[in-house]
Every structure is written in C-alpha cells, then in structure tokens.
Amino acid sequence: MTPTIHLAQQADADALLGRSPLAALVGMLLDQQVPMEWAFAGPHTIAQRMGRDDLDADEIAAYDPDAFAELLKEKPAVHRYPGSMAQRVQALCRFLVDEYDGDASAVWRDVDDGHALLTRLKALPGFGEQKAKIFLALLGKQYGVRPRNWREAAGAYGEEGSYRSAADITGPESLAKVRAHKQELKRAAKEAKNG
C-alpha cells in the first residue's frame, strides 16, 4: 500500500515520496537549512530535471558529478547549498548501490528491531543521530515500517501525538504545529544562551 504523504505540500512531489523509498531518503537528506517543504520537493525536482518519473540510485551514483551539481543549481535551486547537496545525494546513492544493490527500501526491509534499523540509518552518508531518528519515526508513523521497539529507537520523535519533526506532518495544520514547536525550541535556546 502506498502511503499518502504531505511533506512537500505539492501533489506530484508528495506522490513521489509516497511511492519511492529513495525519494523519501533523499528528501530527508535535503532536510536541513531550508524549509521542510523545499527539501522534500527536491527529489521530484531532481527526477524531473533528469527526465524521469522516479529516482534511480544507480543512475544518480553514476552521473557526472559536475553535471549533477548543475541539475541541482538550476533555478530554482533544489537547496540553498546545491553543490554540496549534490555531492551528498550522490554519496548516499553510491552507498545504496554498494551496500543494498541500489534498493533504498532494503535499508529497512526485513529489519525486525528498531535499534538495528536506527544503526542502519545512521550508517547512511549524511544521516547523523538526529536525522536517523527522525527518519525512523517517519517510517513508523507514515510508511508502516514498524519493527519491534521502533518508537523507543526513534526517541522523542517516535512519540505518538507529537509535533516535533517531518515525521509528524500529515497536512498544513500539522506542518504549522511542527513549525511552532521548532520556533519555541529556537526561542528557548536563545534565552538560555543570553541567560
């Protein structure tokens, strides 16, 4: 069953995220230093610029690095830092080709424990602890990937009814709640710094 995703807040981009495990991973990779919708629309933009309906890890991994960077830099740019993100997307795809035969869903397929899945996600290029936990929560909450202990492995991001991250966005209302949560965290951090 293909999940209904609302991370990009654009029908075509969200449809791709719902049907393509690689698009979901690339969107999560791009989700830093730009609005979430921009990041998660990125995989669809990349696919379009490659003349495809979907992303293919083998094709991206083998793409000329300079030409791939130009695809991401084309206006409107896929990310605020399109050159470095092009390198990261290609590194992720090379890893998937080398370790999982280019099949992004193999990262979580047949994993029966949330902590084991978290370890696999943290091994992906560009996925640190926090990004891996958010993606694990996204898999559990929206993609139906729920190995034993997945909520515990995802930490606070796995909590039911929370509005902390991309894992919790199911439409405009939840997006606004996640944004408000992030703004509150920034405000609290600023107050603590100025203390």
Rank of each mutant, 00 (worst) to 15 (best):
A39N: 08
D12V: 07
Q87D: 15
A104R: 09
F68M: 07
D54M: 10
A11H: 12
Q90H: 13
A116W: 00
R80C: 06
A176T: 12
Y163H: 15
Q33P: 00
Y63T: 11
P3Y: 02
A41M: 01
L124M: 05
D110T: 08
P82C: 05
Q90V: 00
D58L: 11
R146E: 15
L17D: 11
G114H: 05
A192H: 14
L117Y: 04
D112M: 08
A180E: 12
E59H: 13
S105C: 06
E191A: 13
G126W: 05
P172H: 11
A11M: 11
D31R: 08
Q142F: 06
V107H: 04
S174R: 04
T45N: 00
R120L: 03
Q130G: 00
L121Q: 02
D56K: 05
H181L: 03
M85E: 07
L71I: 14
L22V: 07
D12P: 13
I5R: 08
I5C: 04
K133P: 01
Q48L: 11
R179Q: 14
Y63S: 14
V178I: 09
E74S: 11
G114N: 03
A86R: 05
A15N: 09
D98E: 15
D64W: 08
G144Y: 10
A189K: 14
D56M: 02
A137E: 04
K190S: 15
E152K: 13
L121Y: 00
G42A: 02
A189W: 03
A41V: 01
P76M: 10
E191H: 13
P82T: 03
A166H: 08
A24V: 02
A123W: 09
R80E: 00
A91E: 12
A24Q: 11
V111P: 13
W38L: 09
E152V: 13
A167Y: 04
A69G: 05
W150E: 07
D58M: 04
H181E: 12
G114Y: 04
A104F: 09
D58Y: 07
V111N: 04
D53V: 07
A47Y: 10
L92D: 08
G18R: 07
A180D: 12
A156R: 13
H6V: 03
R19Q: 10
D58C: 07
A180I: 00
T45L: 12
P65W: 11
E159N: 14
G140K: 05
A156L: 11
R94W: 01
Q130M: 07
L72F: 12
R148L: 10
R52N: 12
M50V: 02
G155F: 09
H181T: 14
S165M: 04
K73V: 05
A23P: 08
D58W: 12
T4L: 10
D56L: 01
A13M: 03
K131I: 11
I169R: 06
P65F: 15
G155E: 08
H44L: 07
L16Y: 08
G18D: 04
H115V: 00
A176Y: 02
A39W: 05
E59Q: 15
K141W: 06
E159V: 01
Q32L: 05
Q130E: 12
S162K: 01
Y143C: 08
S165T: 06
R109V: 10
E129S: 13
V107Q: 05
A116L: 13
E160F: 00
D101Q: 14
K133R: 15
P43E: 10
E59P: 00
A47M: 12
R19E: 02
P172S: 14
D56E: 14
L92H: 10
A154D: 06
